[in-house]
Amino acid sequence: MSFEMESLYLGLIQKQAVLDLEKCNDFTVQFGLTLSHHDAVELVETRTLALKMNGRIEFGGGVIEKIIKVFCNSPYLSQHNYVEILHDLTEIFYYYKNETLDLMSDEDLIRFMKYSFDNICQGSLELLSGRELYNLARNLRFGNTPEYLNNLADEEDEEDEY
């Protein structure tokens, strides 16, 4: 593929990613959270840089939409900090996707991040990244199942009962 064709293709993918993020507003508006077009463009740029910095490639829309849909009901998110936290969560996700050696699915890692962010970390990204995800990655690399994953399984069982 020529350089011009590749650039055009990447541009189209990024435009589609921006549109997908803007569509998330239809869901998140009920929580008082919305992204402007500019916010969506910047989030796609953050994703591109995070992928590059972590030596990853991604096909499709990426995980930002998944992060948005899982985190939008967090009591620690408001319109005031929404975009900044999404940038940080995107960078944290890709870093720890590598650190966990891809032993967790995207969905499981995001659910773990959300559970920890809302409960143990009480909205602290520093605790999430510097302690909870660090411990998770360390435990997974050594073949141990972190006790936190049991909490997630218990939480899922409770949700299934309703």
Rank of each mutant, 00 (worst) to 15 (best):
G62V: 00
V41H: 13
E58I: 11
Y95K: 15
E58S: 09
N54Y: 00
S36Q: 03
L89I: 02
E155S: 14
L8D: 02
Q30H: 08
G61Y: 08
Q79M: 03
S7K: 15
V63S: 07
K66D: 15
E42S: 10
L136H: 02
F142C: 11
E22H: 09
V63R: 08
E84Q: 12
K114N: 12
Q79P: 06
K66I: 09
R47F: 06
Q122P: 01
N151D: 15
M1K: 05
E42A: 06
M113Y: 04
A17G: 04
N81Y: 02
C121W: 05
H38N: 13
G55A: 04
K15H: 06
L133E: 04
E58G: 06
Y94I: 03
V29E: 07
H37Q: 11
N135R: 13
S36K: 07
Y94M: 03
R56S: 09
M53A: 12
R131S: 14
Q30N: 11
E99F: 08
E22N: 11
I120F: 10
N98R: 14
L86S: 03
F117H: 04
L128A: 08
F3V: 12
Q122K: 15
G11F: 00
I67G: 01
Y95H: 14
E4Y: 09
F31I: 01
L127E: 15
L109W: 01
V63Q: 10
Y82F: 08
Q122R: 14
D108S: 11
L33P: 05
G60Q: 01
I120E: 15
